[in-house]
């Protein structure tokens, strides 16, 4: 049950992040940081289904994490969800088509191990 929840937390949060990235990339790079232009960006984003679905997935992820905390120790829950760094990098590579070279893989792996050690 614990590991099932870890899988749900990692998958929904990675998928939510990937959808958010897709929505932002479809919108295009933000160049203009004047308040009026930023309000325009927000208006367009609210109408994009990518962002809405990503927020829903992140909410499911948060709910599953709270459920995990209620049945498992914090020292299990936080290190176990560091697997998110790996699943997000996988989705970025295979769903978004980003080029993940060995330095990026190693870096993401080091960060994931560091998060595990910090939480122990």
């Amino acid at each position: 049950m614990n590991w099932l929840l870890v899988a749900i937390v990692a998958l929904t949060s990675s998928l939510g992040d990937a959808l958010q990235t897709l929505g932002m990339k479809l919108h295009g790079e933000i160049h203009d940081f004047r308040p009026g232009a930023l309000v325009g960006v927000l208006r367009r984003l609210v109408r994009s289904w990518h962002l809405g679905l990503s927020l829903l997935l992140l909410a499911v992820s948060f709910g599953a994490f709270l459920l995990l905390l209620s049945i498992a120790d914090l020292s299990f829950a936080v290190p176990a969800t560091a697997v998110e760094y790996v699943s997000t990098t996988l989705l970025a590579r295979y769903l978004l088509g980003e080029k993940v070279n060995w330095r990026r893989w190693t870096g993401a792996g080091l960060v994931a191990c560091g998060v595990v050690l910090l939480a122990l």
Partner: peptide
């Protein structure tokens, strides 16, 4: 050790290019 690993990982990823996909539009 965790702080050092995270710092090394961040520095390593920062040596890679910020964007590797073509703009969609």
């Amino acid at each position: 050790a965790g702080i050092i690993l995270i710092t090394l990982g961040v520095l390593l990823v920062r040596t890679t290019s910020i964007r590797t996909t073509r703009p969609y539009r």
